[in-house]
Structures are given as C-alpha cells and as structure tokens.
Design a protein around this nucleic acid. Structure first.
Lengths: 120, 120
DNA sequence: CTTAATAGATTACAAATGTAATCTGTGTGA
DNA sequence: TCACACAGATTACATTTGTAATCTATTAAG
C-alpha cells in the first residue's frame, strides 16, 4: 500500500485526530497547503481506493478514519528510503543527517538517550 | 534537480566510476536490474535533460559523467525525506531506524562515534 | 563501395500523481 | 413542496515515471 506525497497530508490529519468528516479534513488542510477542496476530496477517494483509510456513514456525510497505521507507514517509508539512498547502512544515514542538520545540543542529548536505550 | 528512483541507478554507476560510455553503464546495470538496454538509454537521456549528467564526445560515442554530486543528492534526498516523514525531527528519525533495523553492536558503536564527533 | 551494426535521438504508451471541474443524488430552508 | 446547496462519485487533463520500440546517421566489416 504505497501512498503518494500529497496523500500523506490527508493521512497526517487523520493520524492526528482519529475520525473526521471531509469538511474537517478540508479545513485543517486548507490552512497549510492551499489546495482546493476538490483536490482534497480526490485525495480522500484515492486513499479509500487504496484501503489506507475507511469511513462510516453518518447521515449524508462520511466520517473517515485511518486504516494504515502511522507506525507502519513510517517503517515502510524509512526502510525504502534507507535502501534507496544508503544501501541499507544506518550509520551513514545518521552521519549524513548530522552533517546536514547541525543538531542542537538538546537533539544530541536525545540521540545519546536513544543509543543508551539500544545498548541495554 | 529532482531525479527519479530509476534514474538514480544510473547516477550510482557514474558516481562509482567517473566517466563511462553508455555501453559500460548498460553492462554494469544489466547485472543488477534486468532493464533493457533501451530503457537505460532513455534514463541516460532524461538525466541529460535534467542536467544531472553531462558527456564528452569520443568518436561516435559519448562518455558520460555525473554533474550532480552524490553528496548533494544525499543531502537533498535526506532533507526532503526528513521533512516529509518526520517533520524535520532528526531524533525521531533515528529512533525509528533503530527500532526497525535492529542495529548490531558495531553499528551502535559507530553511532556513538558520530555523536562524539558532533559534541566537539 | 555497400551494407549491416550500432550510437544516440525521437516517439510510444500505460500507470501514477497533482490538481481540479462536473455530475448526481438528497436533505433542508423558505 | 421545491429549488438549491452540499456531499460524495465520476471524469478531466497535463506531467512524471517506468519501460521500451523505432528512426536516423555513421562507422566498421567484408
């Protein structure tokens, strides 16, 4: 179940707040993106077709919810990215990010924390 | 300058060995992928159009070379991935990878090394 | 010289994607 | 009750991508 970049914005909205009507999704998204309502409806439909989301009828409206779990999306996306760009080598990925992003000392602390967690 | 997933395979070949003829590229790639020679030629042409690669004439052949640098590609790819999937937060990215990949103790050592480098 | 092989250029074509507009059915306000 | 607003469904259309096939010019072989 591969979802496109645009579709992912819809998923973000649903992952944020469980069940929502199209109207709610639209108003949350019109803020950030400046997509037309029709565009957002199209994306919703494509996600339905891909079974990444579902809905329950509520009068004449639908209330949409995510089927695809965010964690699963992240796992699959990071994995394919890692393969594509770093041939699967996590360390070189982290090195690249570190170089690029100029981590703050809080972020560095967090990383150390994560690594401590790994060692146990 | 955005290059597609397939095009990236061509770049990999050129990044590996500087200047190469189409024939050389084809034979390196036919091993891994099972793309048709014509397909590879198409990808070469698209990369030329995108100015990601260039060539110098050598008799009736061209000798191709990368213009786009691997480091720049990696930087841009990782950055857009980080934004898309992790909203820019490096730590949660590393956490996700760690969870997913089951790092070996050597890899953990490497990570610690990288972080030590960041702290100075 | 003539011809066949080959290099690169151009064209092909379906699926996915971004970005909507139009159609259709129905509940709601006047 | 009756028209219309709004929800969802369907259709649209250009671009990108994957995956080649065909065209054209030139060189190398006989």
């Amino acid at each position: 179940m591969i979802i496109s970049d645009s579709e992912k914005y819809i998923m973000d909205v649903l992952w944020r707040g469980s069940v929502k009507t199209a109207k709610e999704i639209v108003s949350e998204l019109e803020a950030d993106t400046n997509w037309h309502e029709k565009t957002i409806k199209t994306l919703i439909n494509r996600l339905l077709k891909k079974k990444a989301i579902g809905y329950e009828k509520q009068g004449r409206e639908y209330r949409y919810f995510a089927i695809l779990k965010e964690d699963d999306y992240i796992a699959q996306a990071t994995d394919s990215f890692l393969q594509k760009v770093f041939k699967g080598d996590v360390s070189s990925l982290v090195a690249a990010f570190a170089k690029k992003e100029k981590l703050s000392s809080e972020e560095i602390e967090e990383l150390k924390e994560i690594i401590r967690g790994l060692e146990k």
